[in-house]
Design a protein around this nucleic acid. Sequence first.
DNA 1: GAAGTGGATATACC
DNA 2: ACTGGTATATCCACTTC
Length: 821
Amino acid sequence: MKTDFIPIDYDYFDFQNRNYIKITGRNSQGKRVFLIDTCPIYLWAILKPNLSSQKIKKLIEKISRIKVKTRERTSKVEKVEIHDKNFLDKPVKTLKIFVTNYKDLPEIASSLGLEEIEKRRGYDLGFITHYIIEKKLDPLNWYEIEGEEISNSDDYGGIGKAVEADICIMLDKHKKVQEKKFTPKTLAFDIETESGAFQIGSGEILMISLVSDNFKKVITWKGNENKKDYRYVEYVKDEAELIEKFIEYTKKISPDFIVGYYSDGFDMPYIKARAQKNKIKFDINLDGSQPIFSRGISTTAKTKGISHIDLLRFIRTAYAQYMQSETLSLDDVASEFLGENKKEFEFKHSSKINSEEWDKYFEYNLHDSVLVFKLFEKFWPDLLTFSLTIKEPPSELSRAGLSKFVEGYILHNLEKYNEIPERRPKHEELGKRRQEGPVEGAFVLEPKPGLYEKIAMFDFTSMHTSIIISMNISKSTLLEKKEKNSNTIKTKLGEFSFTKKQGFIPALLNEIFLYRKKAKAEYKKNPNIFTKARSNAFKVLSASVHGYIAFFGARYYSKEASSSILGYVRKFNQDTIKNIEKEGYEVVYGDTDSIAFIMGNKTETEIKDFLKRLNSKLPGIMELELEDFYKRGIWVTTRGGTTGAKKKYALLDKKGNLKIRGFETVRRDWCTLARNLQNRIITLILEDGNEKRALEYLKTVIKKAKAHEISKEELIIKTQLKKPLSEYKATTPHVIVAKKMKEAKMPISPGTIISYFVCEAKEKKALVRDRVKLPGEKGQYDAEYYLNHQILPAVENIFQVFKINISEIIEGKRQTSLGDF
DNA sequence: GAAGTGGATATACC
DNA sequence: ACTGGTATATCCACTTC
């Protein structure tokens, strides 16, 4: 049997004490292909240097006799080979020790604590990763595969019969073929549960919506009394049948991906809980088994064959950093990327919903799935590219953090360098690393507060990554002491030198760097929300390489490397500032990898030429680029101080677009009154080049605020609850509000955005937290608070640039000179 | 009792 | 615990004069 094949989802099973991989995918006819395969299982033993061949021979004999007995099976060493490999860029003599079962590798490794063996490695990758590395059957690549058809066979426990696939193959041969077009079949889903049922499984599932290509369905057992199907609504008799129908449709549609939003944390565990309650099976997996729920920081619902993706988790890692939305709610995310919102629906207990409202509810439910479906469609190219680059399956990657992205990429590409994988740090090591404390980070230049005209901004392209590549920095390229031809950098931890002989990590990162460049070029050529999101996703990936090296959980963690990278970051930025100043420019500001300076009487062409000259002196792939030219910009002082505030500025580009960083305008924990006011004031000042109109505008707002004419909506302050209430040491306003919410039986958990406004107090000196009210509560807002604690701080230092004292205006002290207060 | 200081907390920048 | 460090700013508890 022969077919072409694209692997999508990976899983494994044991049969007669051997490990088998099972891969679900498609062929180019769209048939579902299910593939079973095995691979050699082994680990590496790195030998002490200069062992005699006699000694090695004896050692091999000894190792060959090793057997490990566990409750389930006896695993034994099957074969031992000698190999010349590299470990951390150094040549080593190793034994490749083959055993019967992957799960026993750690046991075997611990029985190898022998004198002749220096290190044991390669037993902690996980079977799927091990398999992909070993057999090079990479996710989402196209292959020509050959093997025995086992669809109707009882072999391997009859798995071929059990699984619902068009073709089942026991793999014999495979070879990579040219890339073909692949559009995954997707099913988006969303459930609605009894209102007030915040605990997983505590109330009934009222309906479930399903959306796929040309398929829209809401399955329900509620609403309309005669329970007749109409439009997309399909009635079932009860909750149990609803779940069964859901499974039935899923199998019928047979998608590659079943996609939800927060479905790891809600929909999937909820369905599971309700299935249990109804004493039915939630057997949605292709092989008839149930999803596996893993606990941990967040629950994960892994399905088999039909790959479950919780889109929220992928968005959180890959896009959240650069998103405009202030929450990652489906409504906000859809609004940002699709320009569409959720439908409105007022939740109430199902017994109180009338038939017209049920219709709205169904529509609401369906629309959620529509949004999820569309979002997945848009983000699929990115998940695909990440999966192709990192060589981990999409179900894995969509839930992974950034360290996993980087580490996965390294592990899957070690073979090019004949490298043996480093192990995951053990518990002790983790503790030690975390105790060490942070290393000195980047340099931020203190700005001189003021309004500036004609500003140019340069920044380094993927600075940390290009430093790692150009200066060849990594755990394995670190020299014990300075050598003649090495890259040396002084840091607070000491002076570190790195060999110029390229290490495997810097070599590997080059590719990530190129992806970043490509995505950025794509965005510049075709700027839209998605090319932007993609460019940023690769920016995140590229930027996280340094974070990975400094991450205590990393296999290739290196404090020396991290501190050296940051040393170079400071050096390159500071050197460039000096060079720009030497050229006669006034540098206004710089943060980590960027520098802003006044163009003065120089033209854009002159500055671009200057940039070229600066670049010609930079080593390796280091590159300084023009971020943009700006018409005007403003930098302010810190609050109550005279020094320039870092990480806070606003720029107006030549097209009239504002770029605001750090100001309250961009902070979600300030009320919209203050944010909008500040935004308006910055806009007016930057557009006009003076403060006149801005000041007039401010006065009108102050007047309105004093007269209690501001709508409550604009006064709501939103703060995120970051941990369980019980863990808070300080009693802050948002904690008080959260407690109120809890008493009112409103759902709160870490991550909930707490909304409140500040009211007038009976006592004069009441603390803020004693005056907070929920948005729904009645009460007059405290004008004094909003004037002095929201409006004033938001605009004070902006007007200070023009030597105007806003607090006097607010207090009304200089009425005569400043107008009608 | 005002003023200053420092811890806890949240959020942003790169 | 799940990439890093740098920075601003609030609110509150506490100390100091």
